[in-house]
Structures are given as C-alpha cells and as structure tokens.
Design a protein around this nucleic acid. Structure first.
Lengths: 218, 218
DNA sequence: AATTGTGAAATTGTTCACAGCA
DNA sequence: TGCTGTGAACAATTTCACAATT
C-alpha cells in the first residue's frame, strides 16, 4: 500500500482542503483548480498539487479537480468517510462545549459516551447522553465501541485519567488538558492547546511579526 | 531589534517550553537542561538549544538553564509578561466555555467583554461580565481596551462578524468558527480548528501511521 | 564532567518549470 | 489552450558535532 512518508503538514492541509471542498460543493461548484483551492487557503497551487499527488492523480489536465470526487477521496484518505465513536471525559466547560459542538458530528465523530468523576454530574443528561461514572470506563467504553477518547479534565488529574484510558485499550486520544501527557508508543495522542494560538497572536503583536505564507494557521 | 526570521514552529515550541517551565517551577526545580526539556516535549536537545539561541543565550555551560529566569524570558518573548484584554464574540457552547477557561487568565489573556447578537443572551451574566449587543462592538470594545477578539459564532455569520471587528480597529483575531475568513494584511488572524486534530487521529488509525518526532503535536 | 551555543551538514518541505494530456 | 503531475532546484528546518565555558 502507501509507502511514502506523508508529513504532518500535508495531513493538516488535507483537512483544510476538505473543508473548502465542502463549501464549494454546497455552492454547487463542480470543478476546482489547484489555483482556486490555493487562494482560499493562502497556499501555492504547486503545494496543493503536490499534496494531492502523494495519494494519486485526481484531477484532469486542463480542467482541474472534480469537487465531489476530490472531497470523497480526501475524506477516504483522512478516514472520515465513516463514523468514529468518541467518548468525552470530563463534562466541565470545555467538555460540555465539545459534546454540543456540531462540527464534530458533521465530520463523522459521534460522541457516544460521556464520563465524569463528579457525583453531581454523573447521571445527568447532555444532548441525550447520560453521564457515566469514569470508574466504569473500562467496562462501558469498549461496550459502546469507543475508538477515540477526548480528555477534557483539569490538568492535575489528566495523567491519571489517560492512564486508565490507555489501560482500557483505547488507541487514540485527543487531549484538551493543558499539560504534557505520557502514553505508550502504540497510542496516538494529539494535544489541543488553545492558549498556543493566542500566544502566537501576542508574539506577533509585540514583535510586529511580518506575516508570511501562513503555513499552518490551520 | 530582533532581525531574524523566527519560524512559526519555533514560536509554538516556545509556548510548550513555557508551559513545562511553569510545571518545573511549581515543582521547585531550579535548573533544567536542554535534554530534560526536550524529553518532556518529545523533541531533541539540539532543537531546544537552537530555538532559545535565536533570542539570546540564557543558559550556563555545564549547568543548564535557570528555570525561573528562562520562564520569564520566554514569557517576555511571547509577550505574555503582561495582560491582554480580550473580547469573546458569540456566547454559545464554545464561547461560554472559553469565558470560563482558566488557562487563558493564567496566561494573561483577560476576557473583559462578551458580545452576542441574540436578544435572549444580551444582558445575561457570564463570569461577572454582562453580555453586550454585538452591534455596539465598535463603541464598546475600544472603550474597554480590547486588543484581541475571539470569534466563536456560527460559521455562516463569521465573515460578517470579522468584518465589523476589523472595522472597529482590532488587529488580532482568534477564530473558532469552522470557515476560512478574509482579513486585511495588517490584521493578525489565527484559526483554532478543533476538528483538525481529530482528523489527524483518524488518518493515523486508518493508515497505521508511524509516529515520529512529533513536530507540532502541541 | 557536564552542558551550552552554534556553524556546517543533513534532511525535510516548498516552489519552479515544464512535459503531458484533455 | 489550460491546468495537472512531477522531477529537479531551492529554501527552510533540524540535527550533528564540537569548541567554549562553568
């Protein structure tokens, strides 16, 4: 199968293309050129073509790319042409916002379980899902077919939570807690650090940082 | 002053170092080596030293870096050795989570104004702040000394909101809406795309992607 | 003895430029 | 003619490796 090293930036840009293709599709546009796609994302046409070429040739010379087909193809590459079962752990500010965040559902990430360790929250209802006691995670998460765990607990307890999550056999974790977590090598861990982009803005303003091509401004 | 091109990745790593240094400081550790810092972030010691060397020499050969001093120095570089006044626009799921998010305050990002266009929300109270009508943004934001705007409104209206924000003279914007926004070249815009990391996890699982050095897993 | 700071080398990522095709 | 797909050229970033310093 695939035997090239696809860089992290390429994957992130595929996410961008996917979003834009969905917009174009909604507008009823049938084809799109690498130039148009590039302009929307503030990238170069060559970059777009190179990114796509890692996975095959989807375009037509002289014409461009068929919007719907390309969208489907990228969705397949990213693995979002299907549904993923997600558990949210911690139903505080961030956790409950995520449970209600429609964009996740739209991308195929379906929240099927919610966990917390606060007795006042356990049993309460969020978007039709009963909050479970986190100590039942190892039983209930596999039972519900959970494949991805989102950690939205306070920093100080995040490592304990993630240890339990790993022990329950979950292999993919998205961490919103503002701490560095340790997981075994066979577990995928990504961090969502919401202060980071604010700090970038702060840096830019303090240093009158000249903006350039915008490599990964998402 | 500074006359080197500092890359975006370097800035992001400074955020990581800052967070880790705060942890080390809290643990009472006085010095740290590039090796220890690197291990915590899954980077190389050379990378850490190179990043820091862009801004000066803060370490002592044979000894390492003084934790508190380095933390302060990085805070100064990032511009977070001060307070920034922030307005949150849109007090739905995400917006209200951000208003309550303690990490922002800890980093010096102080939410001083909240705006919405929903009459049922205007006037209501979130963490001691009265929600203002967004149509008064141009008057009230400058008055409150707002320097950074966080956009947490639904995608379809985000461009209109951002246009008004720019017109009110705001030069730094953090966008949580899942759309590409256009702003003039002199306005700093960063996007927080929460689906992106989930899509990365999805990609990794579907492709059995081998994890490498983790350049920007935050 | 340990660890920084940094040029130089190696690697990775981006852009160019053009042949190939609809 | 217009636009893709892609090697080759170029640019940026990372790592190496070692002299300098405590």
């Amino acid at each position: 199968m695939e035997r090239k090293r696809i860089s992290e930036s390429t994957i992130h840009r595929l996410s961008l293309y996917l979003r834009t293709l969905a917009e174009l599709d909604a507008d009823g546009q049938a084809t799109v050129s690498s130039k148009e796609l590039a302009d929307r994302e503030k990238l170069t046409p060559a970059q777009v073509r190179k990114d796509l070429s890692f996975f095959g040739s989807f375009g037509t010379r002289g014409l461009g790319y068929p919007v719907i087909e390309l969208k489907d193809k990228i969705a397949r590459i990213l693995g979002v042409n299907r549904t993923w079962n997600v558990a949210v752990i911690g139903v505080g500010n961030i956790g409950s916002a995520l449970v209600s965040y429609k964009e996740f559902a739209r991308q195929g990430f379906r929240i099927v379980k919610i966990f917390d360790n606060d007795q006042r929250k356990i049993g309460s209802n969020h978007k039709g899902i009963q909050v479970s006691d986190f100590k039942d995670f190892a039983d209930e998460a596999p039972e519900a077919g959970v494949e991805i765990a989102i950690i939205a607990v306070p920093g100080p307890i995040a490592q304990y939570v993630v240890d339990d999550v790993v022990r329950a056999g979950i292999k993919a974790i998205l961490n919103f807690a503002p701490v560095n977590l340790r997981v075994p090598a066979d577990v995928y861990l990504r961090n969502e650090n919401m202060s980071m982009e604010l700090e970038y803005l702060s840096f830019a303003m303090v240093n009158n940082h000249v903006q350039k091509k915008t490599r990964r401004t998402v």
